[in-house]
Amino acid sequence: MNNKKRILAYISELMDENEKLKFESELKTSDSLLVEYQEVKAGLSKINELNNIKTNEFYFNNLLPRMRSKLLLGRKRDKKFEFITGLSFTLISIFTLFIVLQFNLNVKLPDSNPSNVDFSEILKDVSDTDLIKTGEMYSYLYSDYQMDVKNYENLFDEISIEDYNQYLKFKTNYYTGSLEYSLSDEELTQVYQTIMDKKIL
């Protein structure tokens, strides 16, 4: 490390205690190091001297009022922003509420009252033949869980589109519970009897 770096390390307090003591004793014995040290110190004093600047008092006298007016302006802006945010939030809430209400008014949930289910409505478009076919299909598909995929595919190769639609109608009604869960015991007995009479299952 050259002398300049050592001097700067000393001034920056980068030296440990031993290095510091060694440097200080060297400073007392070495004239060249002392001269260099004084030069660096003088350079830094010059820089510090540059920093002594007489300032324009007008600026500092005027700073506080300007800051106050900026603060006031900021508060007004904040209030405006709060108002706009509040308004936007209210409008969004009203719009959301409107959408939700609209949805609730338009969409009728399935009637859970079993007495309102008209069983004849469900089977009205189904002819005896269709009902038998559907019943067979249903029996074929769901009575045996082990049915393999190949058989399943073959079944749909063999049936017509009308048959398939009929099957879907029956299946949907069954799985949505409209047949099983929404009917009273009497109605279920009636369904069972109808199916048995038609020898579906």
């Binding site: 820089i47 540059l50 920093n51 002594n52 600047i53 007489k54 300032t55 324009n56 600026y59």
Partner: peptide, 14 residues
């Protein structure tokens, strides 16, 4: 911000 020309020069330098 500097009051005099001399101060302005000092400020520019620093």
């Amino acid at each position: 911000i500097a009051k005099s020309i001399e101060d302005r020069e000092k400020l520019e330098l620093i």
